[in-house]
């Protein structure tokens, strides 16, 4: 049985799900337009690099265990 990821790593992984999936009613709108993009579009584009960042932090958190 492989070792389970730590709680902190799983929470870091849950963050992008919260931001890009479950919270859709909060950000699915046109205004304010940011960087020329409708807000829903901008929000998802913003969370692409932020998701990478979350995974990188999860990697750092669990690295000492391997």
């Amino acid at each position: 049985m492989p070792e389970k990821p730590s709680v902190r790593a799983v929470l870091l992984g849950a963050l992008p799900f919260l931001a890009m999936c479950f919270s859709v009613p909060l950000w699915d709108r046109i205004d304010p337009i940011v960087l020329g993009m409708p807000f829903n579009f901008f929000w998802l584009v913003l969370w692409i690099p932020l998701s990478s960042l979350c995974l990188w932090m999860a990697y750092r958190v669990d690295r000492h265990r391997r």
């Binding site: 990821p5 992984g13 992008p16 890009m20 998701s51 979350c54 995974l55």
Partner: peptide, 14 residues
């Protein structure tokens, strides 16, 4: 499409 591909990688990490 933007959301599921990004989140697919999050799942893949684990």
């Amino acid at each position: 499409i933007l959301a599921y591909i990004t989140l697919g990688y999050v799942v893949s990490f684990f």
